[in-house]
Design a protein around this nucleic acid. Structure first.
Lengths: 247, 247
DNA sequence: AAATATGATGCAATAAATTGAAAAACCATA
DNA sequence: TATGGTTTTTCAATTTATTGCATCATATTT
């Protein structure tokens, strides 16, 4: 049997079943596992498939891989790095949605072992694809613009869990008005998220500081950390450091 | 024998069997392997065939599955079109995961107003983006390989709902073994999905028919519709039409 | 932490491709 | 038919490709 035949067969299996095991293939094709592994390696390096431990899987699922530039990505990456210092192995972490949280999800180091709950399918997909953590996606009515789940379903599920740490992005934050948002459903979810967490961190680029939204999520001192892209010693943050842990 | 005759013969063999071995040809044509190799080289440089180590293969057979396109996308689109005829305004529909279901989600006509439940974040994202329907994403532990939510959380949520119609993709299906799958968690979810639905439709490209998996979801006659890309009158489907509604 | 399964790497055996040169076949013309 | 030139085929030596095995590293499970 020609190598190409074999690889075609493998491609077909993957296309049909989304996943193949090397151990299955080497029996079906009657070659050694080494050969299969070499085939998979070759197909993977031609980016036709995605290699996983024990076999390979279809690439057509890798949906989120698109390297989309997000606004102020570098700033958000800075925030993400700081945020990640709060996460240790074995922790249970609740993540919100938004581009800053997405940067966090992207930067979780491989090998970190913890459990993530999230209300954002996008974040969930990123986590499951690029981290080694367990990912639990909460269910609910999916919101158009923000791609997070909302409604009583989520709230109920949140009532049932208690996590070590919750990370929330925010649209608007100020010392006087606290954390605010413009969508009612989102406010409800965020409130419930904070209630489900022992500690909560707000991630926000400095640019958003001192802006005001329409509906209140909570006061600034109701959360435990404020993580921005600038140095905590900056004048802009001086009024915050009194009431909250600023990173 | 003339060179041209030989090459015609080779072409015929390739068209017939999709591949040829140099070693076979040199016996059949009673020439040295060198000659065969030169012929193949010549044919290949006229891009009539694809030369590979040990022989040559048909050009059309070389699986150059577009990196983005899903396998057998056109076939899946056919299925999706048939499937969509079952969905009317006001219905409550439960969707599984997989690329066929994805095609369905893509082809939901704008203006259709119904409620979709799904266990697949990818499908949910597609629906919320391109349809005007309400999308409820069920929550649970996100599975690496198939990108669907699994576990007791989903099962519980499924127990609480009753939908008009459920669409399931499948890995493997045969008359004897029924609907099967190779991942335990997926089997559990599929079972629960079927239980939550008044009627269930299986969508599957004809290519998958009569393949067998490892764990059983249900018998073929436990579902109501089988939707494939080929005509229900085809011989391949004749044994199915007795026990199930084939579209 | 130990046991098991999987992955990577280097090596040797074998099969196949390449190359250059020699032999054979072919072909037009004298 | 003989001849010279051309094309085609074969042969031999060398290089490259493929595969399986042994070994060690890494991942996963118990």
């Amino acid at each position: 049997m020609l190598k190409e035949e074999r690889q075609n067969f493998i491609m077909k299996q993957i296309n049909l079943h989304n996943k193949v095991l090397s151990s299955d293939l080497c029996v079906k094709l009657n070659v050694s596992e080494d050969t299969i592994r070499r085939d998979l390696h070759e197909l993977a390096s031609n980016s036709k498939i995605k290699k996983v431990y024990g076999g390979a899987m279809s690439k057509s699922f890798s949906h989120t891989t698109g390297i989309k530039e997000t606004y102020a990505q570098e700033a958000k990456r800075q925030i993400a790095k700081k945020a990640l210092t709060l996460i240790n192995d074995g922790m249970t972490v609740l993540l919100g949605g938004g581009t800053t949280i997405m940067e966090m999800a992207r930067l979780i180091p491989r090998g970190r072992r913890c459990t993530f709950f999230t209300v954002s399918p996008v974040v969930a997909m990123e986590l499951i694809e690029y981290s080694d953590c367990e990912v639990i996606l909460l269910g609910g009515s999916l919101l158009h613009d923000s791609y997070i789940v909302t409604g009583s379903m989520v709230i109920n599920q949140l009532n049932d869990i208690k996590v070590d740490l919750c990370f929330l992005g925010t649209n608007t934050i100020s010392l006087e008005d606290g954390i605010t948002d413009s969508v009612w459903e989102v406010v409800q979810v965020k409130k419930a998220m904070i209630k489900s967490a022992n500690k909560t961190a707000i991630v926000s680029i400095a640019e958003k500081l001192n802006s005001e939204g329409k509906m209140k999520v909570c006061n600034v001192n109701a959360v435990d950390y404020l993580i921005t892209d600038i140095d905590p010693a900056e004048k802009m943050l001086s009024s915050y450091v009194d009431v909250i842990n600023v990173l």
